[in-house]
């Protein structure tokens, strides 16, 4: 991964540039597109991911995970969030870094990285996957109250290229495990680093607000929360929200 590296001074969205290049067959598997300044970064459908120029990592990686069926796509969330977690936990104190279901990276209770994955599904397999990653590194101003950066947490400046290389190396590591169809290790690891697992927190679902405890994540990504009455509820993304 990373052997083909496209570095852009600025662009709208590295995911979009990657999709255009992919359509023209210009990409090898593992290609990376990185930009110093992403002007219209994509978050959840219609949302934006904003990042000031030159301070953070904003890049996309191109994969062809045909060995994954469409129904196994959650493995991509696991693989990418664990890769980011490995890199961030290296800096200090592993006990403060978690993956918030389904794929946010949480450092000291705040979001430090976001992931946006766009797949192409053909004949029930994932023929292409564009993995967009935004990691807050050296930004210290204008962070949302719910967000943080590495510099804010560790009080030092980080070298972006070095962190990029570390992330790519971890992605490759997990990708190879996945390609060997051995998912158990990745499932266990993901669950062991799941934010608020086995802890009481305040949630809201379609019925109302409740105290609940995350108990597990199913192989397909469905989240299970136990409520105060001991009832286990299953959720797709967007069907439940953490309030506290």
């Amino acid at each position: 991964m990373g052997k083909q590296l496209v570095s852009l001074p600025s662009c709208h969205s590295t995911n979009d540039v990657m999709a255009q290049m992919s359509a023209k067959n210009q990409l090898h598997e593992g290609a990376i597109i990185i930009t110093k300044h992403q002007t219209k970064g994509k978050g959840q459908r219609g949302n934006e991911w904003n990042s000031p120029a030159g301070q953070n990592l904003t890049f996309s990686i191109f994969l062809r995970p045909r060995f994954l069926k469409a129904t196994q796509q959650f493995e991509l969330n696991r693989m990418v969030s664990l890769s980011l977690l490995d890199v961030v936990k290296n800096f200090k104190d592993e006990s403060r870094v978690f993956v918030k279901w389904p794929n946010d990276l949480i450092l000291n209770k705040k979001k430090v990285a976001g992931i946006l994955i766009e797949n192409s599904i053909s004949q029930n397999a994932i023929s292409e996957s564009i993995v967009g990653i935004g990691l807050n590194v050296n930004q210290t101003e204008n962070l949302l109250p719910t967000a943080t950066s590495l510099q804010q947490q560790f009080n030092k400046e980080f070298e972006l290229e070095k962190i990029l290389l570390d992330i790519v190396q971890r992605l490759e590591h997990y990708y190879l495990i996945m390609r060997s169809q051995d998912f158990r290790f990745i499932h266990e690891l993901y669950e062991s680093k799941l934010y608020l697992k086995d802890k009481v927190a305040y949630y809201e679902d379609g019925i109302g607000k409740f105290n609940g405890i995350i108990r597990k994540v199913y192989p397909d990504g469905v989240l299970e929360i136990e409520d105060e009455g001991g009832i286990y509820k299953k959720y797709q993304f967007k069907e439940v929200r953490l309030l506290s």
């Binding site: 459908r45 796509q73 389904p102 992931i115 797949n119 599904i121 797709q236």
Partner: peptide
């Protein structure tokens, strides 16, 4: 089809 924060273009 969006599932679990993954966006899937269906061919």
């Amino acid at each position: 089809v969006e599932a679990m924060k993954l966006f899937n273009e269906i061919e």
